[in-house]
């Protein structure tokens, strides 16, 4: 657990220094939300109906940026070698990086949810009660993101390979998150979608813990 926290603390410290999340990722997400609002048109009920789907698409795009940034931290050969020499437990690296990514995605996700509430006319109570689901979704995206970020990082075309690899894997999160959010707006079934998110989270955690070391070595 100590190693997990050390790795997470290091990634968050780097983010605090570079401020990529604040000055690049968050503005990109908010601008995309505004464009979505403009594309849907001025009808408030249409906007509210489409808001959950649009929100999760924007969150997924933002997640790709955060994952790409996180996997670039060790992309230079010198940094990669010096980290390899430290021989940190791969499971701790996987969970630590996922924890740092979860913190970042949760902050941006909450800001985007506030933006969605204002720009796409989502009822305030639905936005508030969907927060726990959002946190579950961002935790799942973080675990999957670290895994796919590591796979893509071994390629020289990591920036373009990552979306091709990760977007299909993010589909269950996107669908379950969108359905859960819609259910909270329109009082539909919620449990099955939360359950799906939980299963995806557990699956990615297990696969990541099993494979991350091998991916590092490759």
């Amino acid at each position: 657990m100590r190693l997990v926290l050390l790795v997470a603390q290091k990634d968050l410290l780097i983010e605090r220094r570079s401020r990529v999340l604040l000055w690049q990722v968050a503005p990109f997400g908010l601008m995309t939300l505004v464009l979505c609002g403009l594309a849907v048109g001025p009808n408030a009920s249409t906007q509210a109906k489409l808001a959950p789907g649009l929100f999760y698409i924007v969150l997924t795009l933002v997640a790709l940026l955060v994952i790409n940034r996180a996997s670039q931290l060790e992309s230079s050969r010198g940094t990669a070698t010096s980290v390899q020499i430290l021989s940190i437990d791969p499971g701790a690296v996987f969970l630590g990086k996922a924890l740092a990514m979860f913190v970042q995605l949760s902050i941006v996700g909450t800001a985007l949810l506030a933006g969605t509430t204002v720009l796409l006319h989502v009822p305030l109570h639905a936005a508030i009660v969907t927060l726990p689901v959002l946190l579950l979704a961002t935790a799942t995206l973080s675990l999957a993101g670290v895994l796919y970020g590591r796979i893509a990082a071994s390629s020289t075309n990591a920036g373009t390979l990552l979306p091709a690899l990760a977007l299909p894997a993010f589909a269950p999160v996107l669908i379950a998150g969108e359905r859960a959010f819609s259910s909270l707006i329109a009082s539909g079934p919620l449990a099955r979608w939360v359950w799906l998110l939980g299963v995806a989270l557990a699956a990615y955690a297990c696969v990541g813990l099993l494979l991350y070391g091998a991916l590092e070595e490759s």
Binding site: K10, G78, S82, L86
Partner: peptide
């Protein structure tokens, strides 16, 4: 690797962290 000291000819460690922060991270994790 835990018992080997490595000096490569590329930039090592994390460019966004200071020398002290880099060494602290390396020391605490090992």
């Amino acid at each position: 690797r835990r018992y080997v000291g490595w000096l490569g000819h590329e930039t090592s460690f994390y460019p966004d962290l200071s020398p002290t922060e880099n060494l602290l991270f390396a020391a605490r994790t090992t």
